[in-house]
Computed example of a mutant assay.
Amino acid sequence: MQEENYFKFSIEQLLPPFLMVFSAWVVFWVEIKWGVNLNFLGVYPRTLEGLGGIFCSPFIHGSVEHLFNNSLPLFILSLALFYFYKEKAWHVLFIGWLVTGILTWLLGRPSYHIGASGLIYMLASFIFFKGVFQKYYRLVALSLTVVFIYGSMLWYIFPVEEGISWEGHLSGFLSGLVLAKLVTMRLPEKKKYDWEKEDYNEEEDEFLQHFDADGNFIEKLPEEPLSEISINYEYKPNKKEAD
C-alpha cells in the first residue's frame, strides 16, 4: 500500500474517539442529574465484584476536573491510534483496555480505581514505543510528538501524589509497551526516487549532467550538434506538360 493511501484520513476515524469521550460525559451527567455515585463500578482489586470495573471504570470520573483532564488526551491519542495504526486500532484498543484493567485489579490498592487515565497511559505508551520499534519516519515523528506533549505523565506511574491511581497508570504503561512489541503491522511502501532504484544510471540522469567531474555546477549544458539535414527535390511534370 502506498503512503498516500495508508495515511488517508476518513471521517470514520473520528467516531470511536468521539464516542468514548461522549460516553464518559454522559455517565457523569447521569450521576449529576440523578444524584447517584457510580464509583462502585470501578476496579476494586482482588474482589469478584471489582472485575466489572475492568470494562466500566474508564467511563467513571470523580469530578468535572478529573473528566475534563482526561477527555482531551483520550480523544487525541485514540484518534492518533485510529489514523496511524488503522489496521490494528481496534485490536490494540480492546486488548490494551482489558490488560490494563486486569493488571490494575491485580496490583492496585484496596480502593475503587476509576477514570480513563489507565487507558490514556496505554495509548501513549503504545504509540511511543511502536514508533520507536518500527523505525518508520512518520511513526517516529509521532512518538516524539507524544513525548513532547505528554512526557511529563511518566512521573505518575509512581506513587508521587496522594489520591491518584498510579497502579492504573503503571498498568496502562506496561500494557502499551508489551502491545507495541507484540503487535505486528504492515508498513506503507515508501515512495522510491529514481536514484534509489536498482536500474538507476547516473549517466542518464539529467540533473547530474549539470555537474562536471569536479562537482562544479554547469548552468547550461553544451548543445548537441544538429544532425545534417539533406533535402532532395523531385520534379514531377503535370499532365499538360507531359502532353
Rank of each mutant, 00 (worst) to 15 (best):
F7W: 01
E224P: 03
G35I: 08
F28K: 03
F207G: 02
Y150N: 11
W29G: 11
E65M: 14
K220A: 12
P159T: 10
I54W: 10
W155I: 15
T100D: 07
L142T: 00
I114T: 08
A242Y: 09
L79V: 04
S125T: 07
L107C: 14
W25S: 05
K190M: 10
S152C: 13
E224F: 13
E228L: 03
G35Q: 06
E224V: 11
W155T: 15
I54T: 05
P222D: 00
L187P: 01
E234F: 13
D214G: 14
S71E: 13
G101H: 05
A141I: 05
R186I: 09
L81E: 08
Y136I: 02
A213Q: 15
G53K: 02
I149F: 13
G118P: 01
M185S: 08
P159R: 15
I60D: 12
K191M: 05
F173L: 05
F40K: 01
H210L: 02
R46G: 12
S117P: 11
K240H: 10
F126N: 03
Q134I: 07
I120F: 06
L48V: 14
M153N: 15
Q13H: 03
K191R: 10
I54Y: 09
R186W: 07
G35L: 05
M1K: 13
K86A: 07
S230M: 09
A141Q: 07
L144Y: 06
E219R: 13
A141P: 00
T47A: 08
N70Y: 06
I127Q: 10
E161F: 13
S230F: 08
M20D: 10
V140H: 03
P45V: 01
Y137M: 03
N69M: 14
G163W: 00
R186S: 15
W166F: 15
L177T: 12
E224T: 14
S227L: 11
S111I: 14
Q209T: 01
S227H: 08
L74V: 07
F40Y: 03
P225F: 03
Y121I: 08
L93Y: 15
Y193A: 09
E196F: 00
E203W: 09
P159Q: 12
L93C: 13
K181W: 15
Y156V: 08
K191F: 05
S230C: 07
F84E: 06
G118H: 02
E189V: 11
D199I: 01
I11M: 04
N201A: 01
Y235A: 15
H61G: 06
W25T: 04
E31D: 05
D212L: 08
